[in-house]
């Protein structure tokens, strides 16, 4: 027979599966999927990686950053910001309505951008991921 429908009738699934229902059927659930915990808006969520120790102890060198661009940045949050074209992880505050960025690490040099610097917020860091027993 040559005629093929792309969407076959699916009634067979019920015909053949009605014999011995498992007593566990009512209690089967999907396994927990970690990505559903950290990614609430997949279209707007991007993974970054941190390099450097200016945000210690909040963010360590090599941490993965789950960045959600659909979140409106709030003062006090950690963000990926772009300073003169350079992507960077910083703590965001607003000073007189203007964004100001800072480091969390008291030992790092304070972040003092050129007054002419162009600063934009790329996205809010909603989660960071760190292996506590690195296997690589």
């Amino acid at each position: 027979m040559l005629s093929v429908s792309p969407f076959p009738s699916r009634s067979w699934a019920f015909e053949f599966c009605c014999g011995f229902p498992s007593p566990a059927d009512d209690w089967i659930e999907d396994a927990i999927d970690v990505s559903r915990l950290v990614v609430t808006n997949p279209a707007a969520t991007f993974l970054w990686r941190a390099s450097g120790d200016c945000m210690t102890p909040t963010i360590l060198d090599g941490d993965y950053l789950v960045c959600d661009r659909s979140l409106a940045p709030v003062s006090g949050e950690v963000v990926v910001a772009v300073v003169d074209g350079e992507p960077t992880v910083k703590r965001l505050t607003y000073v007189a309505g203007r964004p100001a960025l800072s480091h969390d690490n008291p030992r790092a040099l304070p972040f003092t951008p050129d007054p002419q610097s162009e600063i934009s917020i790329w996205g809010v860091v909603a989660w960071s991921l760190r292996a506590h027993r690195p296997n690589r």
């Binding site: 991007f46 993974l47 970054w48 990686r49 941190a50 390099s51 450097g52 120790d53 200016c54 945000m55 963010i59 060198d61 993965y64 950053l65 990926v80 350079e86 992507p87 960077t88 992880v89």
Partner: peptide
């Protein structure tokens, strides 16, 4: 391939 490969995600300076 920033969005599909774990070892190619973009890097932000911290």
């Amino acid at each position: 391939r920033y969005t599909t490969r774990l070892d190619e995600v973009p890097v932000a300076r911290a």
